[in-house]
Design a protein around this nucleic acid. Structure first.
Lengths: 209, 209
DNA sequence: ATAAATATAGTAATCAATTACTATCTTGAT
DNA sequence: ATCAAGATAGTAATTGATTACTATATTTAT
């Protein structure tokens, strides 16, 4: 009666569902120990069926990283698009990044896990190129922020870029550890406020609680 | 001739060696996928021998977390001990923490790995209590920093504490990803400079490059 | 009817843990 | 001082469970 009927779904959509399943599972367990059986169970399939859609597990991971890179960068770009001020852009990017992670807690864990691994997988290459792209975009933004006078002239641009990314990573880490993504959304603006104060020109009194 | 003779080593020292072996291995591979066989090989023992000294794998992980908590906190305390100024203490803690991680890259990976896991292991409890202790110490320091006028009155103390820890975590993450611990040592003072600028009273002109 | 999607039922490899046994220290009665 | 007896630390082989992956049969939508 309550026996779930296995649905027939076209291959491409099934691949998308697989990616979502992995990200979902990564939200509550170590990405490296997600088994193909667990993925299959989560999407109500048998384990063997997965290999009709992916040649091997690495290919699944590659697809997941691709999804993360594409969606994260798109979201950040969209957030910054209509803002002219460099610091305004940076704030929008920061908050958009946090919002994305709050929506998909498994995403950063896949990223970290893949980037830390010793093995040089296709997924790792994707992750690395995304990080490079991200860092480059940031450096440009900081440079133009100094040029237009929003940021301090004596600001260490490289350190500021490192801190921007590091702040996000640290915030994400702490929230994932606490198992509370709402905390992340709540903390993000307050923490960015301090960061902004650290890089801004002295005169600008960006008020804060 | 050159055949390595299996040495007999007293149980307690053998347990210490095991902990070091795990932290060593965690420096270059995912902690979650460190096998007992790999640990044994690294310390030139057979796999089964490990279970003469630990009842199970969880007990090994617990011993490792204990080592990390004890050594990290001791190092931070020692660094801050002889400094009176709150911001001075914070800087010393920051740099001591980074130095510890640079010496033992496997340590933070064990920490993160354990804190992220869904399973409530003895190791996880240890890690959580250490983080609580750390955060509490920080909050006190920030509060007294505001009282003595080094820090802004309108500073969001909780956000500042979150950012302090987050900055370290982010810095560590990026260096581990890059596989370059020297980068971490080099970046730390510059990044802390920006953080300090973010929390300090406006008047204080902490010079920076 | 046919082809794509899934189920069923395997494989070899690897994992933590246990076993039976051996080698080496340590100790206390003589 | 010596040396059997017990304690300690090790090996080698094996266990049952779990892993990624595969071969083949069955179902279902068109």
């Amino acid at each position: 009666m309550t026996k779930t009927k296995p649905k027939k779904i076209p291959a491409e959509e099934r691949r998308n569902i697989t990616v979502e399943a992995v990200i979902d599972l990564a939200g509550s367990s170590n990405p490296d120990s997600i088994t193909t059986a667990a993925i299959a169970k989560h999407m109500k399939l048998t384990q063997g069926a997965i290999f009709r859609h992916f040649p091997n597990k690495d290919a699944i991971w590659k697809a997941v990283m691709n999804w993360v890179a594409k969606n994260l960068m798109a979201r950040i770009d969209r957030a910054a698009k209509d803002i002219t001020s460099p610091t305004g852009k940076m704030e929008a990017m920061f908050l958009a990044h946090i919002a994305f992670v709050a929506d998909h807690p498994g995403a950063p864990r896949m990223l970290f896990g893949e980037l830390q691994g010793a093995r040089q997988t296709p997924a790792k290459r994707l992750a690395q190129s995304m990080m490079k792209q991200y860092a480059a975009r940031l450096r440009d933004m900081i440079t133009s922020g100094k040029e237009c006078g929003e940021l301090r002239d004596n600001l260490d641009a490289e350190a500021a870029a490192t801190l921007f990314i590091g702040t996000i990573q640290g915030l994400v880490m702490q929230s994932l550890i606490a198992g509370d993504v709402d905390k992340m959304r709540a903390d993000a603006p307050r923490v960015f406020g301090i960061y902004l104060h650290g890089i801004s020109r002295a005169g600008d009194a960006e008020e804060q609680e």
